[in-house]
Design a protein around this nucleic acid. Structure first.
Ligand SMILES: [Mn+2]
Ligand SMILES: [Mn+2]
Ligand SMILES: [Zn+2]
Ligand SMILES: [Zn+2]
Lengths: 131, 131
DNA sequence: ACATTAATGAGACTGAGTCTCATTACGGCG
DNA sequence: CGCCGTAATGAGACTCAGTCTCATTAATGT
């Protein structure tokens, strides 16, 4: 997704520009605090607010790893899913997606305007298996 | 799932019995704090610890609603998914599941022992739609 | 230029979740 | 039984991600 700032924000500000640049610099998942530390000139609240706006707009999506800190990632092209190890929290990205149709139908059936979906598969990774 | 305490805990204690009973009393989703308030005799840390054990064992699973509080629900029979409104956080339970095969194959392909999966579909609910 | 008001940011605040540690009590074994 | 070893407990301190407040700044339309 190429972000059209004008559609997401009501005003184009320097702080949001910096947050946006920092997000583009990330590889993979990141937290609000990650960004905040990389942006000493931008207030913490602004980082959180901007992540909120970008998530609501669909540009970002939340990633739920083990632990209690929310992670984000740029959402669109290369939509993918996660395999999560319930023992060690290892994450494996899964690039295929065969549930898009099902997600669309499910949303439609309840009158929802579909925005996106998340599929996470949990289990034990090879190194954490027991029996 | 009928819980075999002996397989999940190393010792059978009164506190865990009470937590288990309280969980059975819940309908739908609940938080650690919900349980804690219903169990004045049981320490907060014990409630959290027991939820952790039960989740790792697969008896419970986490439910991620809007907001920053983790919810739980008893996982197995009547496995279901969630439609989540990105605007008002309304949740609609979806009872069908057509992604079980895909989840199993995905786990297998990476050598994971499948435990469960979660599918959440995000969009705008009928009352929050714009255009 | 000026007015309107979206956005900012310092910092106080909240509260979910974790950790510590002294104490209790399960359960295996003699 | 009665003893141990140690899993589990629980009060309460602590952490820190996320929210809120509010005075100030600055983007945008006219
Ligand atoms: Mn990923
Ligand atoms: Mn549900
Ligand atoms: Zn693992
Ligand atoms: Zn809604």
């Amino acid at each position: 997704m190429v972000l059209e700032s004008t559609q997401v924000f009501q005003r184009n500000t320097a702080a949001r520009g910096k947050v946006l640049q920092a997000i583009e610099r990330q590889t993979g998942h990141f937290t609000a605090e990650d960004l905040s530390q990389q942006l000493p000139g931008v207030g913490r609240a602004t980082v959180y607010r901007t992540l909120g706006v970008l998530t609501r707009s669909g540009y970002l999506c939340k990633v739920l790893l083990g632990g209690n800190t929310l992670h984000y990632q740029v959402s669109p092209e290369e939509h993918h899913h996660h395999l999560v190890c319930i023992e060690c929290d290892r994450i494996v990205d899964v690039e295929s997606c065969e549930v898009a149709d099902y997600a669309r139908e499910t949303a439609l059936a309840q009158g929802f305007q579909l925005q996106r979906h998340r599929l996470e598969v949990y289990g034990r990774c090879p190194s954490c298996q027991i029996g």
